[in-house]
Amino acid sequence: MKVRSLIIYTIMIVLGFLWILPIWPTVLLAFKSNQEFGIQRFWQLPSQNFFGPNLIKAWNQAKLGRYFINSLIYGLLGAWGAIFLSSLASFSIARLKVKGAFGWFFVIWSGTIFPFQIYLIPLFKMYISTGFYDTFLGMSLFYIAICIPFCTFIFRNYFLTLPGEVLEAAKLDGCSNFKVYWKIYLPLSRSAVAVLFLFQFTWIWNDLMFGMVLTRSASVRPIMVGLAQLQGFRAGSGTDIPSLMAGALMASVPTILLFALLQRYFIEGMRLTTAGE
């Protein structure tokens, strides 16, 4: 018995050490000056707090501030837009007895099954020829579209678990379909909305590939593209690593906050998507 828990503790402590190993020095690095970074060992503390100057440098010179705001808008618009459109469609598919309901669902859901690479080339050409390329509108519309299939999958399953009598009763009282959706079904699915907001906002916030392909100018580019372009380790071009790390930490704040606030819903969401309940 004792040997067993000794083994378990050893394994967990070794793993715990390996997992904290990258976090602590990275955070420390964001507080150092570029000079200190060059001469100090990774565990040494900075002589004074350089986080502010580092962040300001990343924020202004590297335009991370602009990218940050762009992504915030994409995340909010994309997640809410997709949640609204897909919950409306799912309500109809699951509850309104439309003809070929499963067929419609299948077409929308099929947007989740392909690797993202399959959309890139035609989207790029389509965006160039329609003038959507490198525009706020084009990016927002794309992010809404890419989030719809998964949201529809979750909402349809969720609405099917809600009792159908509510709809019948409300319709007898003369409510329109939209009113039933807006006043009854949407408020009832608050936890699904929370799960999807967390998942979709995070997805949009973390997107690198579509941001790279569909945008060019700083006023439109999302945050991860900005971050990825900042790194100059490979090229050895003498990037200011501490300010890069300060920027990277700042760029992680929205998703870390979301996960912290909605942790309960994250677990719930994983249960919904994996256990198929």
Partner: peptide, 27 residues
């Protein structure tokens, strides 16, 4: 009311078809 139930599906369906499924086919 019957028509509205189809109108509810339309925007989501159109977005997916235009931005995802047509590009996938075109690839």
């Amino acid at each position: 009311e019957k028509l509205s139930s189809y109108l509810f599906i339309l925007p989501a369906l159109a977005m997916v078809v235009i931005f995802l499924l047509i590009p996938a086919g075109y690839t």
